[in-house]
Amino acid sequence: MLLELIFNVVLFIFSIYAYVLVGITSPAATATELGAAFWPRIILVLLAILVAVNIFNIWKKGKAEGNLKFESSEITSFFKSKIFIGMVMVIVMAFVLEYAGFMLTTCIFIMAYGRLLGQKSPVKLILSGVIATVVLYVIFQGALDIMLPRGYGFLRDFALMVETLLPF
């Protein structure tokens, strides 16, 4: 409930900030052109109103149920949870992809996430990582001709070498 309240307050402040920003950075409307700020501003006004109503509802409900208190244990347990680790892994994968290339990123990600999901056998993890990477690579890079990221340095050279081996 507290997290939801914080999210809504941040959204409310953002709506007002964006309303001002879009007005400053867009050229003024003319008699026959509504202007670049017109549509976003309509959305932002509606958003701010609805978020304000939502904040009021959360506050009212939270007060009645008494669960608007800050509990540090709830937050620390989230940061220690598998979900948070999973989120970090997904974000890291997305940022590393360009530098490490598709093959290395996919292989490591599948093994690491598999471990997070409870697979304990290292053999199974390595096999699943390697096989899934090869299958995905052959289908998308080979058959569908999607240029998957090669990475930099020796990883790029390796990817280029593998591309010459593809039968397609």
Partner: peptide
Amino acid sequence: PYSILGPVIIMLAMIGSFALKNGT
């Protein structure tokens, strides 16, 4: 098993997004 399927789904989603403009 989901311990393999889950990460593969994420990687499929990654390829789907990447293929759009060939950009990360």
